[in-house]
Design a binder for these strands. Sequence first.
RNA 1: GUCCCAGUAGCUCAGGGGAUAGAGCAACGGUUUCCUAAACCGUAGGUCGGAGGUUCGAAUCCUCUCUGGGACGCCA
Length: 674
Amino acid sequence: MAKSCCATDRYPPSAMNILAALKNRFHEVLTEYAGDSDVQNLLDMIKQAQDARFGDYQANFAMPLGKRLGKAPRDVAAEILEKVGLDDICSQTDIAGPGFINLSICPDWISSQIHVAAGDDRIGVSPVDDPNTYILDYSSPNVAKPMHVGHIRSTVIGDSLARTLRFLGHQVITDNHLGDWGTQFGMIIYGYKHFVDRQAYQQHEVKELSRLYRLVNQLIDYWKSKNGLDTQQQEIRRRATELERLEQIQPTGDKKEDKKHSKMLARAREQLSQARKIFESMQTKVAAIEEDEQLKGYAQQHPDIAQSVLLETAQLHQGDATNRQLWEEFLPKCREDIQRVYTRLKVQFDVEYGESFYHHMLPGVVTGLQQAGMASESEGAQCVFLDDFETPMIIQKSDGAYLYATTDLATIAYRMNEWDADEILYVVDHRQSEHFHKLFAVANAWNAPDVKMHHISFGTVLDETGRPYKTRSGVAVGLEGLLDEAVSKAFEVVSANDDGKPNGPELDEATRNHIADVVGHGAIKYADLSHNRTSDYVFSYDKMMALEGNTATYMQYSYARVRSIFRKGGVDVDRLRQQQHPMILGHSAERALAMMILRYSEALENVIDDYRPNQLTNYLFDLAKRFSSFFEQCPVLKAEDDAIKQSRLRLCDLTGRVIAHGLDLLGIGIVEQM
RNA sequence: GUCCCAGUAGCUCAGGGGAUAGAGCAACGGUUUCCUAAACCGUAGGUCGGAGGUUCGAAUCCUCUCUGGGACGCCA
């Protein structure tokens, strides 16, 4: 039932997402069949075709509709198609299988749309009709210690979501909720008072502070382990006895019983081995201190270090002059240090209100919740009990100190007052999901009933053995070192590739450095963004820097190829854009590429739908693949005639624009040559 | 013990009601007098952890189960 295309002049020259256009067309007719309430469900069954053999788009609503109406789905499909009339948009409409409606978009319509997109600053992506105010809370490192690999996902995902939401027309406030007020500062204050190396501090304050942080941490761990050894030993004995007991039990012959028994045995063995592992790790920590005379001395002089650290923290919070002064001295230096990483990553925040910013509001949170009848005392602490959770949310400890839950509630209150947020997104790793569930429940019930809050959780970065990514010594890998490594690997690849060019190298040292910088940082970011954020992923330099397949480099390379065509052809891009030559999509590779360009807005909608930047990376990868295919099959500068050449140049230009724009939304740069 | 998340090709991962489940890498075969071969084209590779259920239709939703990871009152 192929149909021919007719004129396209019915369409105003405004940007139109194809899917939206199709849904628009079906809307009225489907309402006749389903009524207003259900029509959206049916419209959602119009989507991109799963397979190119089925055309460009497919509509799947005829099957459920047929069922409901007691008619054959294929008949329903034919009836609806007849009523809707898609002759101007579709070159072909087919009913296939049980009642799939397959739609092929008419080439004329594609070229008219691509023509519109080319003349549009936003490359065919309209801003949303109803902008919201979003607060994005991401990165949020603890400023007392260097940033490590665990911080990058939050930073990169949050930054990309902020850019995307903003481009779509939403009001966005990005906030780096720094950890600048917690126990870590008690630790460095304590460390500074007792163990500082003056000379080292003068040379590099932050380095020395982070050494002090690690030292104090290590000493606390030492005493905790040392004091826990006996208990752990008992635990091992208890587990061993239990295991022995279970091993004595003879099979009963009853299949079910025996299966249960062998399961218990396996569990008991696992628990025993776990207990031993914990014991060993405690022993290692103890030994590390005791084998070092200096550390051993420190430990013996500071047996109550854990308590003392909490005391230092409490004194800071209570306004103790010395601690406050130290905090004011340390904080700006720590922040500068962290800022260096943001500068490299080109990540910016609208505000950076750390935990300390909310300190004065915390008593009000507790009294407010008490007055609302939501908080009550339990075991000396102020708690909010919630129906859906076994454990309460603790908002004030029995010693009077506040917790991060308290700060988070104060933060929400502030954000509502200051910005009247519609939505708050927390880009934080998945381990904190229970905390956020509680937090949202309390805030919605208490003082922020209408705001939508989402925990944009993400998985752990693993090493090649599937363990959380750490160095051999067990410390999380420093972020700066990671970035340096990526850049230097990129430099090697850039140089090797340039040296291997048939007509000799084209790039000087400075250019190579610049390219390595863009490519290296892009590779790291892309690795994070291209995985579905909810899953853990295995971090591998080699995969990331392979610079082939689904990597930022592949997109950057595509862009560079576009630029190279323009350079070689001496093309004046501004003129090209002004001249607006007609788009000719005669070759299947041209059509496929054009279609992909028009789907950019659909890809961005998919990103926002569930806050998943990997929807954009997937799209860009598809786009770049189509471009490579086009590049192979369709000569541009040597096209058979000038009309085709001009059309192809415009297609190249658009591809380059979408790639550059999409990468920018991911926080990734492009280069002219590589 | 309770709760949350994951399990898809040899490896790393997409796909989260729609047709014969995809990509990259690795393997194998091919492409360069031609705009960047960091590329392209092709071949091979799967019981979507397992069992039930809901549905016209299930990798996708529900229940149970196995395996792995994580979180579970005064850390953040």
